[in-house]
């Protein structure tokens, strides 16, 4: 499978958009301008981009607490994302979800999720619905290495395989479950070793190489679309920043040298070098892309700043869906 020039730029653009959004979010958090928790995706861009680059607009994904990257990669709108991070009424979730629940169901992005491992069963449901309707859509569950220690993952993996559903399990193995290294929380090194236990193929790819991820994702997605059933892709990757927040060096649970080593294999810069070496891109062209997307980020921050906060009367809105069949007012006396 040779990756077209258009696709190379597409994957590159997805990665740069994620990097810029996350770096901007980090700066805003540092300036105390974002309420709540912030889990940055910087370093892992190749995974969301490589996988989402293999999906159609109407395919579904479930995400994690580190979910901005998945939404950006699925085509998320900077303005509405930034507004949501600031808790504004114009945000994706009207200020009711925030970073950990950011979503766009119209893009098939079924939410970041504050509960580790909870996205996989939901992706199984989406995959079930996709097959049920028979429109050839696929679901992808993004999850981290840590969430494969949770029952929900195992139930989801088993059910997906038992029902032979069109789903791809995309594991971002960044070697740490929050602040604890993987080797302390599981007796295996490769998450992919779990796949065989459920009866699905599993492969390891270099999660810092967007082409490697994309190649595997194209195969896995196509396999699911053609009725071949579930598969698992383990992308070995790394988060540059802390589990949450913006600190990256001087952390007690991982050595600075380790961070530096991974950064040498930066998914965006190494890919740019390769594109330039291959004569597909020039340094000027690449700089142009960064400049253009930087402008989008500035616009998004401005949009979010200018947006109003939701009013208190919105607290009780959207707890329930109004039902056409029920003439009762929903909610109870409080």
């Amino acid at each position: 499978m040779e990756i077209s020039t258009t696709k190379q730029f597409d994957l590159h653009r997805r990665m740069v958009r994620i990097r810029l959004f996350e770096e901007a979010a980090g700066r805003l958090a540092e300036a105390n301008r974002l309420p709540g928790f912030l889990h940055l995706y910087v370093g892992e861009e190749a995974v969301a981009s490589g996988v989402c680059g293999a999906l159609n607009d109407d395919d579904h994904i479930t995400s994690t607490h580190r979910g901005h990257g998945h939404l950006v990669a699925k085509g998320g709108d900077f303005n509405r994302m930034m507004a949501e991070l600031m808790g504004k009424a114009t945000g994706y979730c009207k200020g009711k979800g925030g970073s950990m629940h950011i979503s766009d169901t119209s893009l098939g992005m079924l939410g970041a999720n504050g509960i580790v491992g909870a996205g996989s069963p939901i992706a199984v449901g989406a995959a079930f619905a996709n097959r049920y309707r028979g429109r050839g859509q696929v679901a992808v569950a993004f999850f981290g290495d840590g969430s494969t220690n949770i029952g929900a993952f195992h139930e989801a993996a088993n059910m997906a395989c038992a029902l032979h559903l069109p789903i791809v399990f995309a594991c971002e193995n960044n070697e740490y479950g929050e602040f604890t290294p993987r080797h302390k929380t599981m007796a295996i090194t490769d998450i992919v070793d779990r796949a065989a236990g459920y009866g699905m193929p599993g492969v390891i790819v270099d999660g810092m190489d967007v082409i490697a991820v994309h190649e595997a994702a194209v195969e896995a997605v196509e396999r699911a679309r053609q009725g071949g059933g579930p598969s698992l892709i383990e992308a070995k990757t790394y988060r540059y920043y802390n589990h949450h927040g913006i600190q990256n060096l001087g952390l007690k649970y991982r050595p600075d040298e380790e961070v530096a080593t991974w950064k040498q294999r930066d998914p965006i810069f190494t890919f740019e070098d390769r594109m330039i070496e291959n004569g597909v891109a020039t340094r000027e062209k690449v700089d142009e892309i960064w400049a253009e997307l930087r402008q989008d980020i500035e616009t998004a921050i401005q949009f979010a700043d200018d947006s109003p906060y939701p009013t208190p009367d919105q607290i009780m809105v959207d707890v329930y869906t109004k039902s056409s069949t029920s003439n009762t007012t929903v909610g109870t006396k409080s």
Binding site: P201, V203, I204, E219
Partner: peptide, 21 residues
């Protein structure tokens, strides 16, 4: 070699997965 037996061939063909165990 800890990395052998786990590459993309498991996805595109019925190649065997070799676990660490």
């Amino acid at each position: 070699n800890p990395n052998a037996g786990k590459d993309i061939r498991r996805l595109v063909t019925p190649a065997t997965h070799t676990s660490d165990v």
